[in-house]
Nucleic acid binder design. Structure first.
Lengths: 94, 94
DNA sequence: TCTGTATTTAGATAATTTCCTAAATATCTA
DNA sequence: TAGATATTTAGGAAATTATCTAAATACAGA
């Protein structure tokens, strides 16, 4: 996981929608794909990018693969934004 | 300003570094460009994208154009991330 | 008005990203 | 093992993005 991968991952609207869907709990790849007008391999590709960025986790259960949010990375991001809103003078990127 | 433009804007490492530089106060386009191994027109392009996303503001003073952070947009982003970290069940994107 | 400095705009190219179809892999059930 | 379902991997075309050089615009001072 790198900070850059995370920012790239959330830059895409499809991926942000996937993250929003997962806020209500884990879903299978197929359930996620059913929310989009897009072929399954394309959704799978987006899931892979989210996983590489450590924004989601997956676990297999039989034929299904369940995806869920990894909120610890969101907390790191939260801090990044907080640092801009606070008027503090120290900084550092990456 | 659209949420999508903002996320696209912060997806690029050069642009995130520009934002970090501006945390210490406003800088001219030339001062910003001097921090990068990149031609000035390229930096100018990145500044334009940050401006369109409403992450920075600019003001002209003589020959110089000063750029500075617009922290209100960061607050909106902060809320977006908070919504993921909180375990709340409601959601909505864009 | 002419010259120099600061910055942006325009246009081209190379790299990256998104999405598709086809094929491969993994698992379940008969 | 064979067939069905769920999902990913592979390979390629189209769209987007980052960067460059050259030219244009804006301003200051002589």
């Amino acid at each position: 996981m790198s900070f850059n991968e995370v920012f790239k991952a959330i830059a895409d609207p499809t991926r942000r929608k996937i993250l929003s869907l997962l806020r209500n709990g884990e879903l299978t790849a197929g359930e996620i794909a059913s929310h989009f007008d897009m072929q399954k391999p394309s959704v799978s590709h987006h899931l892979k990018i989210l996983k590489q960025a450590d924004l989601v986790q997956d676990r297999r259960e039989g034929q299904h693969i369940y995806y869920s949010l990894n909120t610890t990375v969101f907390q790191d991001l939260l801090r990044w934004f907080c640092d801009f809103v606070e008027k503090g003078e120290k900084h550092g990127e990456e």
